[in-house]
């Protein structure tokens, strides 16, 4: 379709076009500003941050916020815990998702209608927090690292995405050809389905990884030992409960200094914690549309 040039548009179209661009620019700025501000604040002098002198760009550039982050043992420990939870979870998540999605994608699996329903039902109805808590307790997972990994071994939603992808993108002929050559369903999965599903597995890796990295809910319910806490829980203490010890400080000047430092630490923490996801973002963005579209195909 040939696009009309702006100068050749009717007056009405000009106004509509202008309104659309203005609307998008406004939304983009509103979303962008807080992100830019956090990054700028994390590189500024504490006093400049709390007195409001930092508005868009860093004022009196310093790395003191980041020094404070890397001297904070709890944050480091949380960071390492989160990496551990994400890494182990991903192996389990992807294995379980594939083991489930593949049989459900094959029409030769005669029970697949019922088995699909068995899984899909869990997306719409669940036992709720307390029965799950009692179960995790009974299984002796409470307050162990496994509580962060096993209860979230698979997401039905992601499994459906994977199943739909396999059904729509891998030709049935391959399966029949394999059958003739005596390839078993299990070998077919390992040697044909897995290599051909790399792109959807990459999408799921990102979905699962980001969800686990950002999760604090399971940790709050199932963990109470400090040394097991993921980064999100440590951040909750620092960012939201604002745990800074003010009792030892007597004069107003020192209080202000401590307050500035605590704000700086918060902004630097936010940047460090978001960094792994931000670094993955270009890769995520490339696959976003694909993931959303495959997922949108109904059950």
């Amino acid at each position: 379709m040939k696009e009309t040039k702006f100068s050749q548009m009717s007056m009405e179209d000009k106004i509509v076009t202008f309104v659309i661009y203005a609307f998008l620019t406004l939304i983009t700025l509103v979303i962008l500003y807080p992100i830019v501000y956090v990054v700028s604040a994390s590189f500024s002098e504490p006093q400049a941050v709390i007195s409001g002198r930092v508005k868009l760009f860093p004022v009196d550039f310093t790395l003191r916020g980041y020094e404070a982050v890397f001297q904070n043992g709890k944050l480091i420990n949380g960071f390492l815990n989160s990496i551990f939870y994400v890494a182990v979870s991903l192996v389990l998540n992807l294995t379980m998702t594939m083991l489930c999605a593949y049989p459900l994608s094959r029409k030769e699996f005669t029970a697949r209608g019922w088995v699909s329903l068995f899984f899909v039902f869990t997306m719409y109805f669940s036992g709720g927090m307390v029965p799950s808590y009692i179960l995790v307790n009974k299984l002796h997972l409470l307050n162990t690292r496994w509580a962060m990994i096993i209860p979230t071994a698979m997401s039905t939603y992601n499994m459906i995405i994977c199943r739909t992808y396999i059904m729509n993108n891998i030709p049935d002929d391959l399966y029949e050809a394999g059958q003739i050559d005596g390839c078993t369903p299990f070998r077919y999965m390992l040697q044909v389905i897995v290599p051909l599903s790399k792109s959807i597995l990459a999408v799921l890796l990102l979905y699962y990884g980001v969800a686990k990295w950002n999760d604090y809910y399971n940790a709050m319910i199932y963990l109470y030992k400090d040394n097991l806490m993921p980064l999100t829980m440590v951040m909750r203490e620092i960012l939201i409960l604002g745990e800074v010890d003010m009792t030892k400080v007597s004069n107003a000047d020192a209080v202000a200094k401590l307050q500035g430092m605590s704000e700086l630490l918060k902004y630097a923490t936010i940047v460090v914690a978001s960094l792994p996801v931000v670094m993955l973002y270009p890769a995520i963005q490339k696959h976003l549309v694909k993931g959303v579209m495959v997922g949108a195909v109904k059950g």
Binding site: I27, N214, Y216, M235, I238, L239, I240, K266, A273, S274
Partner: peptide, 16 residues
Amino acid sequence: ITYMPYFISIVVLVGM
């Protein structure tokens, strides 16, 4: 820009 905030954790969002 508009897709990005989705990947920020809730803890960070509320902290911000």
